[in-house]
Design a protein around this nucleic acid. Structure first.
Length: 581
RNA sequence: CGGGGAGUAGCUCAGCCCGGUAGAGCACUACGUUCGGGACGUAGGGGUCGCAGGUUCAAAUCCUGUCUCCCCGACCA
């Protein structure tokens, strides 16, 4: 492609609305333009990257026997009502009505649609297992879109769904996907970790997230440098300690703490450390109020709480409900003397602690000398605390590292969560009807683009991994007024193309400096610089984008061969696996 | 949804407080000089100042409303 014929509107200055590097560089490199909040146009350069990632994904999924199809974007409400998610998904789902006022959603994910398809078409265990995937646009009306394409409201996702007759088959396919994902991200040049995760809205028990390590990531990952344990913040476990009521039991006393509603304030007033406090948080779940006790210096991770108590939805109680239950204003809730219909559970962070400070359930008062086991009997001890870096590993006790990550993939074992309510059954070998066991596997294509840039850039621009670079080679004639420079560059360009290299020729009449600057910005991995200075001795220069100073001189022919050999090596993958159909 | 900030040329911004014929740099067009890391000169093209009301002889500027975008937060008692 000739630059003068291409559409690569690079920007000299940083766009005012881009905060993170990947967003900034995508806009500056002429890859991306915003249309509305969280909605973007992908320009040609970006589209080429996306198509390359698509191709890698297709290759690796075909290899494990998954089959590509295309499901609709527009979903009828009825399908979502069958699983209850029409209501559960809430405002995250974009909804609309047709001319007859029938309700639809723009698909945020496709479990319902694919399960509907399979329940109509698959009858027998003989047709299983079946893995279907698509690469398609998804819509999610995010609370707060941000970081460019990292969290958009419209984005491209590869989603796959597998159907099985038994657990063994599901396990095997889940393992296949896990390996395929590792290969995909590796080929895309990403440093990633797969971690135990929490399932969120999708559901299911076992699931793993693929996290690209980056400071700008929105997710928090805890990993053990010793044993390799790794989990996302919604799943990472605390060490569980059994609670015993201390021998020297303290005396329960009420103290006045007027206007002091936070642990910090009361801590300051009483001169007691926050870790000696019981924080009593009231939640509403499944119509009941639950008091969750956690150590004063710790916070509750709602995803863990929901899982520990086996409820779908966890919501903090509003101020009205708090007053109703505790008889006091918000800020003075305590664990003892709560109404009998309130469940009380305690987090392990409180185990082994005595002589505690807590709210008195009376506005303006707290209590000291509280003993769990004497003054309050938790119905259960649970692990619902949000970990922090340095907490002990639940497997081996080593201090955990806390890092940030970008979630680029998430795979789930769903079991019968969707097949059961939707009546998706097959006839098994033993002659009985059974619901399909399912797995689902998501991979954020556009997010991979952003993640790749987050991990592969320098102060001048993007440094593409060759496997997903928009072009593999850029030919850079420095002076378009010099006939021999133009001639040599044209010849090299044609030779590169003849060798099957994806080549961009910067044939603009601009000065060398601005062409170099754009080349750095756009980040094509291999560069062949053609200038009068080198041609004096019949040489051109070859440089790798990631190591600009290590350029080498070659004759034009050698340059093409040198670049070709390197590109072929760096492209990677390309393995034609079995089962591709 | 709460708080903060911003909407003026394709981009980055000034002008607004103190009302009086709309600006700069970059980008774009033409010509000339330049030409190995974002050149320079000359001459140009390009803006209903987000939108709608209001005040005023007069509004980018003051007032009211509204829309959009960005950032932070979203109940940890």
């Amino acid at each position: 492609m000739r630059w003068t014929r291409a559409f690569i509107p690079t920007l000299k200055e940083d766009p005012a609305d881009a905060e993170v590097v990947s967003h900034r560089l995508m806009v500056r490199a002429g890859m991306l333009r915003q249309v509305a909040r969280g909605i973007y146009s992908y320009l040609p350069l970006c589209q080429r990257v996306i198509l390359k990632i698509d191709a890698i994904v297709r290759e690796e999924l075909d290899r494990i026997g998954a089959i590509e199809l295309m499901l609709p974007i527009l979903h009828p409400a009825e399908l979502w009502q069958e699983t209850g998610r029409w209501d559960l998904y809430g405002p995250l789902m974009m909804r609309l009505a047709d001319r007859h006022d029938r309700r639809y959603a723009l698909g945020p994910t496709h479990e319902e649609v694919v399960t509907d398809l399979v329940r109509h078409e698959v009858r027998s265990y003989r047709q299983l297992p079946l893995s279907l995937y698509q690469i398609q646009t998804k819509f999610r009306d995010e609370i707060r879109p941000r970081f460019g394409v990292m969290r958009g409201r419209e984005f491209t996702m590869k989603d796959a769904y597998s159907f099985h007759a038994d657990e063994g088959s599901l396990d095997a396919t889940y393992g296949d996907f896990r390996e395929a994902y590792s290969r995909i991200f590796t080929r895309c040049g990403l440093a990633f970790r797969d971690v135990e995760a929490s399932a969120g809205e999708i559901g299911g028990d076992v699931n793993h997230e693929f996290m690209v390590l980056a400071d700008t990531g929105e997710s928090v990952v805890f990993s053990c440098p010793n044993c390799g344990y790794a989990a996302s913040s919604g799943r990472a476990e605390a060490v569980r300690v059994a609670h015993q009521v201390p021998a020297g039991q303290a005396v329960l006393e009420e103290v006045a703490t007027p206007g002091k509603t936070t642990v910090e304030e009361v801590s300051g007033l009483l001169g007691r450390d926050p870790s000696e406090f019981v924080k009593t948080l009231l939640f509403q779940m499944d119509g009941r109020t639950v008091a969750v006790l956690v150590r004063g210096d710790r916070e509750i991770e709602e995803e863990k709480l929901g899982r520990a108590l086996a409820v779908d939805r966890v919501e903090m109680a509003g101020p009205e409900r708090v007053r109703e239950v505790t008889g006091a204003d918000v800020g003075f809730a305590g664990p003892h003397g709560l109404p009998k219909d309130v469940r009380v559970v305690a987090d392990y962070s409180l185990a082994g602690r005595g002589n505690l400070v807590a709210g008195a359930n009376r506005t303006g008062y707290h209590v000291t000398g509280l003993e769990i086991g004497r003054d309050v009997q938790p119905e259960a001890w649970i692990d619902a605390v949000r970990l922090v870096g340095g907490d002990p590993c639940p497997r081996c006790g080593t201090a955990l590292d806390e890092t940030r990550g970008i979630e680029v993939g998430h795979i789930f074992k769903l079991g019968t969560k969707y097949s059961e309510p939707m009546g998706a059954r097959f006839l098994d070998e033993d002659g009985t009807q059974k619901p399909f066991l399912m797995g689902c596997y998501g991979l954020g294509i556009t997010r991979v683009v952003a993640a790749a840039i987050e991990q592969n850039h320098d102060e001048n621009g993007i440094v593409w991994p060759t496997a997903i670079a928009p072009y593999e080679v850029e030919v850079l004639p420095l002076n378009m007024d010099s006939a021999r420079v133009v001639e040599a560059a044209e010849r090299i360009y044609e030779e590169c193309r003849a060798e099957g290299l994806e080549t961009l020729l910067d044939d603009r009449a601009d000065r060398a400096g601005s062409k170099f600057a754009d080349a750095d910005l756009v980040g094509i991995p291999w560069r062949i610089v053609v200038g009068d200075r080198g041609l004096e001795s019949g040489m051109v220069e070859v440089a790798r984008r990631s190591a600009r100073k290590d350029m080498a001189r070659f004759s034009p022919e050698e340059a093409v061969h040198h670049v070709r050999a390197n590109v072929l090596r760096e492209r990677g993958g390309g393995a034609k696996g079995p089962g591709g159909g």
